[in-house]
């Protein structure tokens, strides 16, 4: 386990295994990780605590990732300006564009290995090399 980075990440995905996988990777890299199963749960969390980054899936029940992001960006600052990383199963360019229109700061296509995830999250949180 790397020493704590002091950065707090919210992982939003309805698949237990996927959340678990991201959590393992991020915790191992020294991040503090919270989980949410869908957009609704995620909104409650971001309004209640300060995060450094959101890692969000696209397809989820109740509120999908794009709707969640659109809602997030309409909140008051500083919640509205939370950086968000979308991880999707769709590689299509229009999906990346849709993610951007919803307010995503970056977009990765599954499968995303642990190292790739940690690398992106680290840079997006401003951690030194």
């Amino acid at each position: 386990m790397t020493e704590p980075s002091g950065k707090r990440i919210l992982v939003i995905d309805d698949a237990n295994l996927v959340r678990r996988f991201y959590r393992d990777a991020l915790e191992h890299a020294g991040f503090q990780v919270d989980e949410a199963l869908n957009g609704v749960e995620a909104l409650e969390k971001v309004l209640g605590a300060a995060y450094d980054l959101i890692v969000v899936d696209v397809n989820m029940p109740q509120m999908d990732g794009f709707t969640f992001l659109e809602t997030l960006r309409r909140q008051a600052p500083p919640v509205s300006s939370l950086p968000a990383l979308v991880i999707s199963t769709e590689a299509a360019a229009h999906d990346a564009a849709a993610a951007r229109a919803a307010g995503a700061n970056f977009y990765l296509v599954k499968p995303v290995g642990q190292e790739l995830l940690v690398e992106h999250v680290s840079i997006m949180c401003g951690l030194p090399t």
Binding site: E70, R73, R74, Q75, P77, S81, N105
Partner: peptide, 9 residues
């Protein structure tokens, strides 16, 4: 919609 949020993030 959400322009300030996008800019801030």
């Amino acid at each position: 919609e959400g322009a300030a949020g996008r800019l801030g993030s």
